[in-house]
């Protein structure tokens, strides 16, 4: 499609974006509200940010969340790359259906079911719930997303390149490392970031599989939200939104510049 957008098209997109961004804008504005109430504007203040940095529990939760996210995303990306290679390059093999089935089912499986089943796994194995059980669970959830992202890139990656490397003297494993991996690197990075973000964001699976000392930020936020509006949440949210927005926009700009250079 290439014809220009009509007024209706522009209006739909604009309204859609307003709908998507309105709550975020409200949050950011009210994070600087001196008043405790959302409905009243009590003047500009950064006191909730100050309060945030004094809340040790919240800071601990952020630390746990980042560690869980980084480790689980790395695991998911590693295993996901293998799964993608097998699914794209392996042809038909026994276990392909099981692998593809497991991966795609995880994508849409309600989190409550995933969380419950993983908890039962850890109970039956006698593993004490804590940092590692959440990390493994998140790796399971995000493995599916990582696989799909890498698989999509690998599917369009010319297999002749790897053959050319072998033809010129590379053993298969080295041909993959020297040619295919650099080629799909952007997708692998994207998969890691996606997995990391999903892990940071997960409440349900973490609630089921976490234990004492491994409370994640979403778990803290959830109990805070349940207890009522706490302006500190606005402050945390704004910081997170700023962080993510900066990262995503930076990645986008880098990509655009690279494209413009070509």
């Amino acid at each position: 499609m290439r014809r220009g957008p009509s007024a209706f098209n522009i209006a739909s997109v604009a309204l859609g974006l307003v709908f998507l961004y309105a709550p975020i804008v409200v949050l950011v504005i009210y994070s600087f509200n001196d008043s405790r109430s959302v409905a009243v504007w009590g003047g500009f203040s950064t006191r909730w940010y100050a309060a945030l940095f004094r809340d040790q529990q919240l800071l601990d939760a952020i630390g746990v969340t980042l560690r869980v996210g980084a480790i689980s995303a790395t695991l998911a990306t590693l295993v996901g790359t293998m799964a993608a290679v097998a699914l794209v390059r392996g042809g038909r093999f026994r276990g392909r259906t099981a692998l593809a089935g497991g991966v795609y089912a995880t994508l849409v499986m309600p989190e409550v079911i995933l969380g419950l089943s993983l908890l039962f796994l850890f109970v039956s194995l006698g593993l004490p719930r804590g940092f590692w059980t959440v990390t493994l669970s998140h790796a399971t959830l995000t493995l599916a997303y990582a696989t799909v992202v890498i698989q999509a890139r690998l599917a369009t990656f010319d297999p002749a390149l790897e053959e050319a490397a072998q033809d010129l003297g590379c053993p298969p494993w080295k041909a993959f490392m020297l040619v295919t991996l650099p080629g799909i690197a952007p997708a692998v990075a994207a998969a890691w970031i996606l997995a990391f973000t999903l892990s940071l964001d997960d409440l349900v699976i973490a609630s089921f599989t976490s234990g004492p000392g491994a409370t994640t930020l979403p778990m803290r936020l959830y109990s805070a939200v349940r207890l009522g509006v706490d302006p500190k949440i606005n402050a945390v949210s704004t910081l997170l939104i700023g962080l993510v927005a900066t990262g995503v926009v930076a990645a986008y700009l880098v990509q655009q510049r690279r494209r413009a250079r070509n």
Binding site: D158, A160, L161, E163, A164, D167, G169
Partner: peptide, 14 residues
């Protein structure tokens, strides 16, 4: 393939 002293020029060049 990587041990054969036979090299190939691929169709889409690769």
């Amino acid at each position: 393939p990587h041990r054969r002293p036979v090299h190939m020029m691929f169709q889409a060049y690769a």
